[in-house]
Nucleic acid binder design. Structure first.
Length: 109
DNA sequence: TTTATGGCTGTCA
DNA sequence: ATGACAGCCATAA
């Protein structure tokens, strides 16, 4: 309760409603947050979120379906472990099948 | 106020 | 399929 109307808070809310066992892309989160096209800010927002926000930032991946190489090396592995622990499967290249684990409003087959 | 950064995305070779 | 370049814009100093 310090800032006034940060867009990040909206982003945190969107990320927070990502279902477990599902991943969303930065672009998708941005779109749901009302900032379609500002995917970059989404990643930055997740980088600056508070630990008490309980935001499953790990469920947010880039458009390629893989974790992004953030500033602090090592967290990319942690993110991968967290996702695997939620039931998300990575391929041999460390990529996720967005067609299956991607958070979509419209299930298929 | 301006400047610099950045967990991205889309297009081109 | 991957690798490289430019663009967009919010937040922090």
């Amino acid at each position: 309760m310090s800032v006034r109307h940060p867009r990040w808070k909206k982003i945190h809310a969107v990320v927070r409603r990502i279902p477990k066992g599902r991943v969303a892309t930065y672009g998708q989160v941005a779109s749901l947050a009302g900032m379609a096209g500002h995917a970059r800010q989404v990643g930055y927002a997740l980088h600056a979120l508070d630990d008490e926000d309980a935001v499953p930032w790990q469920r947010v991946v880039n458009a390629r379906g893989e974790v992004s190489p953030r500033s602090d090396p090592g967290w990319d592995q942690i993110q991968r472990q967290l996702l695997e622990r939620e039931g998300i499967h990575f391929d041999l290249r460390g990529r996720i099948d967005l067609d299956r684990f991607g958070w979509k409003h419209h299930a298929r087959s």
